[in-house]
Design a protein around this nucleic acid. Sequence first.
DNA 1: TGCAATTGTGCAAACGTATGCGTAAATAGC
DNA 2: GCTATTTACGCATACGTTTGCACAATTGCA
Lengths: 344, 344
Amino acid sequence: MSKYQSTVDIARALNLSPSTVSRALNDHYSISAKTKQRVLDYAREVGFQKNLYASRLNHRKTFTVGILMPEISSHTFSTITSGIKEVLEPEGYDLILMHSAEQYEKEVHLINYLTSIRADGIIYSPTKETNDYAHLETILKNKIPFVNIDRGLTDFRCHQILLNDKQGAYLATQHLFDMGCRSIAHLAGPKDASNARHRIEGYQSALNANGLPFDPALITHSDFRITNSNDAIRYLLERDPLPDGIFVVNDEMALGCMHLASEKGLDIPHQLAIIGFDDEVYSQYFRPSLSTVRSPVQEMGRRAARVCLQQIENYEAYPADTQLLTPQLIVRASSRRTTPKHYA
Amino acid sequence: MSKYQSTVDIARALNLSPSTVSRALNDHYSISAKTKQRVLDYAREVGFQKNLYASRLNHRKTFTVGILMPEISSHTFSTITSGIKEVLEPEGYDLILMHSAEQYEKEVHLINYLTSIRADGIIYSPTKETNDYAHLETILKNKIPFVNIDRGLTDFRCHQILLNDKQGAYLATQHLFDMGCRSIAHLAGPKDASNARHRIEGYQSALNANGLPFDPALITHSDFRITNSNDAIRYLLERDPLPDGIFVVNDEMALGCMHLASEKGLDIPHQLAIIGFDDEVYSQYFRPSLSTVRSPVQEMGRRAARVCLQQIENYEAYPADTQLLTPQLIVRASSRRTTPKHYA
DNA sequence: TGCAATTGTGCAAACGTATGCGTAAATAGC
DNA sequence: GCTATTTACGCATACGTTTGCACAATTGCA
């Protein structure tokens, strides 16, 4: 059975008091070099590890920040995390990653875990299921530094760092229009995901601005995963007449779209122009390379971390605020049908 | 300043003793329904969260398992994690993900963190820099359930779940030979990564088995990332005569390889056959679709979790042991030059 | 009405580490 | 050689929660 030694055990073994052992382990000035050496040697020999539960019982600050994400397999997640690390690790914070796997129940459990270990701050993104924020009330009541990212929260006041999804979708749709597309379909995300909704809004807004009618038959929903999207894609590809452009809610599904379109022998981009969203690492290497909308995800992580730090330093000084990041249109071969000047 | 209320605070407010409050919060049978309700209501009102540092001070078991990975952006990592969750969450364990970012120093720090919070088990993969295992001695000395995965540890006795990388590389190289390739290059991984080394061994072994000479000029190294591999890829593509097949150490770099080869106007697979390793999600959607070697990563996670559980239940009963998982050859368009019967 | 059984609550100790304070021993200063 | 200072350590307490035990209050039963 695993059993760590304690400072008391060490004290007994070396005929010292626990306080001396504790001070020796923490390199306290008042302990003689000789005693320190004795303690350190013995501690190493028995594989001593401080019990954090005891150690932190006295201390207000834990120097840990929790990151809770619904999804960990995408480029977006790992890059956000990387941005967060960039800011928080130099400040001495440990990062604890937790994964809610798009399940509300787990999210609640893990938020409780993070507050129970008295994380100094929490950076969070909700699951697709999340529409009750009762579990976040505790965080507000205790004034825990908290930042919501990537997926917006409606009717809950807190710091948020979001992408301007509507603008990104607008850019993508406008681009397809500029490339000559006049029947633009949208392969959308889940109806209950706020960023997917905003992308639909941007899509509609761009159609509207260009005098194109909004045809509900040209929009279909799936989740964000390529493996679950074949039916939705086929629905669009088998329409008659075929749309001449598709704005896809993310690159992963856009990939599936290109794949099935190729199988059908469609010429991309001339028969069908395709643009995705997210600029995954692989998107530029595709044939044809995939046009997309890039979100400054690393910057999103950095900002979230900074906002978290500010709250840690002075909670009251920073009232809840939402930052909207600006997306960038990336034009590649999957949509480049002509080359008007402004896209040169 | 954030300040949680304690059971003592609640007790004072409700004119109860801390023990009654504690029992009420834990739904202890000996507390009256009325008192429980009073406590629960008040606790909710003030946003009470149990202090885990105090709570776990008394208890041996924490029901947490730490996962420490050098890299979190790949499909491999997220799938392994998913396999681990599949086994451990139903058993009631919380999973704590930590990221060493290929830095030995961080690895040491985070291993210490995980032992300090008395994780019931640790599932781990070393960084590329790791060749000193002093920090793992503590784990052995305290008999902490521990499983190393994906990247082998040399000269350190512990439970390991690894892929048979040599066999996978052998399969890939043999396949290129079967497709008619007679000048097979290898775009390898970092020299100090054990799985990259094993893949080189498998490559050499297959050359040898087929009577092909090993030409050191046909092997070049890079790290595993596509963004850093252009020079290495160009080195191979600019050789004269051009190799007629390349076995690439992972799919990500194979993608870069296909991309640059296409830019040079090479016909894949007929002038140059390419096969990768890992079967990333996007590989099958490429054009040409990418041949690869698939590792049962989900199963790797499941097995690691099971081995971890066994140790938690009875450490002594399971002496250190290494399991080698069998890779699977996935033949797709990037290497399918002819179609001999056994690849039909 | 008296006594036993049951119910609900409080007391006190324990978990392991950190730290203010007290003090004995060693050293310095004259 | 005596006092003053410094050095090195121990004592006691605190952190917040849990839990064995004691006990008061209530109920049940004859």
